[in-house]
């Protein structure tokens, strides 16, 4: 009798906790769903993980560089994007996580330009990768597909894509899979750099040159993170070599910081940062960055 009573109590507790879990990190049942057993094959690096997670978390989302490109008046082109079918050949978690980052950046680009008709192919490939990486619970394919087929919902689609990406990244970091999280942000960053350098190759401008030069600072934050995983896997070792090659060409970029004495707040209330950086990057040095980025990105996506 007592055992039966205890069993009922345990059932009540478990049921209660399942209902409550809908509120974790967001509050309702349509929020993040946890799938038990998703922690398999963990290979985290036990080194200052809090600081590492902070850096990974701080990286710009997939949509940001694309938004900057669009805002520069650059017309849309699919030639900058990876063929989504290419990720079908990826077999390792390493390649899949990196590919997920790359396709997320491409999806951000398509979203920003409201190319809903082309988004579906990317959603299909991303769904495959998320399922294979046991992240499918964060990628609501049916809802995204529904939003993608209606031109009126581009804001909701962009919101949901960015949220899915953030939730996947956060889940990986919180479940001792920071190696995959690092690959995810690296994929986004490399593809975003590829996008902006390809645009600069065809339509050079001082603004784009400056934005590219400033990526030196992002790379200098990313590289130490990737080095933490260097010895865990041969693929990581190779990726670090690629990033170090990229660092060499970025090392010539000279960035100096200055302070402006002008008022910080414009008449319209916009706050203008009074510190500013000056980027020195010659045409030849920029060309070297463009070429190296192209070479490395194309190696990574093979």
């Amino acid at each position: 009798m007592r055992n039966k009573w205890l069993g009922s109590l345990a059932l009540v507790c478990v049921t209660f906790m399942q209902f409550s879990c809908g509120g974790c990190n967001g509050g309702s049942e349509d929020d993040i769903k946890f799938i038990p057993g998703d922690e398999a094959n963990t290979s985290d690096v036990n080194y200052n993980s809090e600081a590492m997670n902070e850096v990974i978390e701080s990286f710009p989302p997939p949509v940001e560089m694309a938004a900057l490109v669009k805002d520069s008046g650059v017309p849309f082109s699919t030639k900058y994007l990876l063929n989504p079918d290419q990720v079908n050949d990826y077999t390792s978690s390493f390649k899949k996580a990196l590919g997920l980052g790359i396709l997320s950046a491409d999806l951000g680009y398509l979203n920003v330009y409201s190319k809903t008709s082309q988004i579906l192919d990317y959603l299909v490939s991303i769904r495959r990768l998320t399922e294979e990486l046991k992240l499918g619970q964060f990628f609501d394919f049916q809802s995204l597909k529904r939003l993608a087929t209606s031109d009126d919902n581009i804001d909701s689609l962009m919101y949901m894509c960015t949220q899915s990406y953030r939730n996947m990244d956060e889940h990986l970091r919180n479940n001792q899979r920071s190696n995959l999280s690092a690959l995810l942000v690296t994929g986004v960053w490399v593809e975003s750099l590829y996008l902006i350098t390809q645009v600069a190759k065809e339509q050079p401008s001082d603004r784009l040159r400056e934005t590219i030069g400033e990526q030196k600072r992002i790379l200098n934050n990313l590289l130490p993170i990737m080095k933490l995983f260097k010895n865990s896997d041969k693929n990581f070792e190779e990726l670090v070599q690629h990033l170090e090659e990229l660092k060499e060409v970025f090392d010539v970029v000279k960035i100096t910081d200055h302070v402006d004495e002008n008022p910080q707040v414009r008449d319209d209330g916009v706050i203008v940062q009074n510190e500013y950086s000056v980027v020195e990057l010659s045409k030849e040095e920029l060309q070297e960055i463009i070429t190296t980025t192209e070479k490395i990105r194309n190696k990574i996506v093979k």
Partner: peptide
């Protein structure tokens, strides 16, 4: 509030 960033970081 809006903020114009003048230094990547």
């Amino acid at each position: 509030f809006d903020f114009i960033c003048n230094k990547t970081g």
